[in-house]
Design a protein around this nucleic acid. Structure first.
Length: 437
RNA sequence: CGGGGCAUAGCACAGCCUGGUAGUGCGCUCGCUUUGGGAGCGAGAGGUCGCAAGUUCGAAUCUUGCUGCCCCGACCA
């Protein structure tokens, strides 16, 4: 992509409404534009990152055996009356009346919708286990939206729903998602920590939230220092026993959010305990028969008798992750994207557009990167070198290739790693080899 | 939902107290000089001062109402 043909309205100064790093940087990098409180348009750069995250999440869900569907954003109030949540949900639910005076709502989540799909179509235990997920926009009419896309009203979320015959089956489904989440966050370049979460009135021990560490996190977290050294599961299928082993390993070390942490009764010693702030980026939850019982989601069991299925739900805040990743990955100059989610792998900087030798060297590199299918953003504009450097640092592409008259004369390109800041002068071939192959 | 604040050019702000021709910086356009870490000079474009009433000869400025946005807290993926 040539920057001269791209739409990336960057800002030199900080917008006053943005208080935290991710919000400020997303606005400055031209990733998003606010439409109203907690509602954003995604501009090309932001959209690209959002899609990259979404695709990684999707890939890991598919690998875990979940099946992708797409449920509507607008749902009928009738379904929510069945679970009694229409009245319970309160003002956070955006209610809409259509032209026929029918009560509708913009879905804040999809348990009712997916349970309806299940009960309409699944009759036999032979069709279980089943896990359906979708990646769809949700709306929660937060009293006070803030922190940009981290706490918006409209947000993109992956939510999966598992259906099993009994608790034992549901537990396997839960563990499978648990492991899929560990793999997902690792691929996103994040160090995620599962915390035992409050299961509320339903009880049970099957609820975890996944948080990533960032100084601007909304809640305080307490964990055993060794949690950060645990091994991420391999990219392969695991048996139910292996899944349980991985979950046991990850949950045996202490980790809790502030509402679950009791300093007076902490099971580990002070020098093992680390306290930091975290951002919740996922939540998995076994809720048993709460919706299946209320809505009549039954299957015929092996013995010919009806069984109310056991369910769980598994959410990942996809749009929130964009902000979350920036909170975890930035410095004073801007964003520092992990390679897997970066909108482009490399920024190609022409330090003197219009100079014949520079232009030719850049065009050659640009063509070769494109041919090798390396995503490249080529700054071919007539801005000054300093402005180009600052902009590239701001948008945080993992690599920068700088081509100027001086380098061209010596047959070298300056290669900079955005994360480490290391620069080296390489021949164009050696620079290409760093990214290709 | 309690408390506080803000609304003037694309962005950040001054002007308001004490009513009288709408300003500064950045950005944008054109020209010249520049060109390796957000250039200099010159010339331009761009605003019914959030909306609506009111007071006044006259309102960005004073009064009232409304709307929007932000911050702290409670709440929350």
């Amino acid at each position: 992509m040539r920057l001269s043909r791209y739409f990336m309205p960057t800002l030199k100064e900080d917008p006053k409404e943005a208080q935290i790093a991710s919000h400020r940087l997303m606005l400055r990098a031209g990733m998003i534009q606010q439409s109203s409180a907690g509602i954003y348009s995604w501009l090309p750069l932001g959209q690209k990152v959002l899609k990259n995250i979404e695709n990684i999440v999707r890939d890991e869900q598919n690998k875990a055996g979940a099946l992708e569907i797409l449920m509507p954003t607008i749902q009928p109030a009738e379904l929510w009356r069945e679970s009694n949540r229409y009245d319970d949900y309160g003002k956070e639910m955006l209610r809409i009346t259509d032209r026929h005076d029918r009560e509708m709502l913009y879905g804040p989540t999809n348990e009712e919708q997916v349970t309806d799909i299940f009960r309409s179509n699944v009759r036999s235990y032979k069709d279980l286990p089943l896990n359906l997920y979708h990646i769809q926009w949700k709306f929660r009419d937060e009293v006070r939206p803030r922190f940009g896309v981290m706490r918006g009203r409209e947000f993109l979320m992956k939510d999966a729903y598992s259906f099993d015959l009994d608790y034992e089956g549901a537990k396997i489904a839960y563990n499978r998602m648990f492991v899929a989440y560990l793999k997902t966050y690792a691929r996103l370049g994040l160090q995620a920590i599962p915390l035992r979460a409050d299961t509320g009135p339903i009880g049970g021990d099957l609820s975890h939230e996944f948080i990533i560490l960032a100084d601007t996190g909304e809640s305080e977290v307490f964990y055993h220092k060794d949690v950060l050294n645990l091994q991420t599961p391999e990219d392969r299928d695991y048996s139910p026993e292996e899944l349980q082993g991985i979950v046991d390993t990850w949950t045996s070390l202490y980790a809790a959010a502030d509402e679950m942490h009791d300093p007076d009764n902490c099971p580990i010693s002070g020098d093992e305990l680390v306290t930091r702030r975290g951002i919740e980026v996922g939540h998995i939850f076994h809720f048993g028969q709460k919706y299946s019982a209320a809505m009549g989601a039954n299957v015929t069991g092996p013995d010919g008798k009806d069984v109310t299925v056991s369910m769980g739900s598994y959410g990942i805040g996809v749009s929130r992750l964009v902000g979350g990743i920036i909170e975890a990955c930035h410095d004073e100059n801007g964003i520092v994207w992990p390679e897997e989610v970066a909108p482009f792998q490399v920024g190609l900087i022409n330090l003197k557009s219009g100079d014949e030798a520079c232009d030719a060297a850049c065009e050659d590199l640009y063509a070769k990167l494109n041919a090798a299918e390396v995503e490249v953003l080529y700054d071919d504009t007539s801005d000054r070198a300093g402005a180009k450097f600052a902009n590239m640092d701001l948008i945080g592409l993992p690599w920068q290739f700088s081509v100027g008259p001086r380098g061209v004369k010596n047959g070298v390109v300056e290669v900079k790693n955005r994360k480490t800041g290391e620069k080296e002068e390489l021949s164009p071939e050696a620079a290409l080899a760093k990214l290709i192959g």
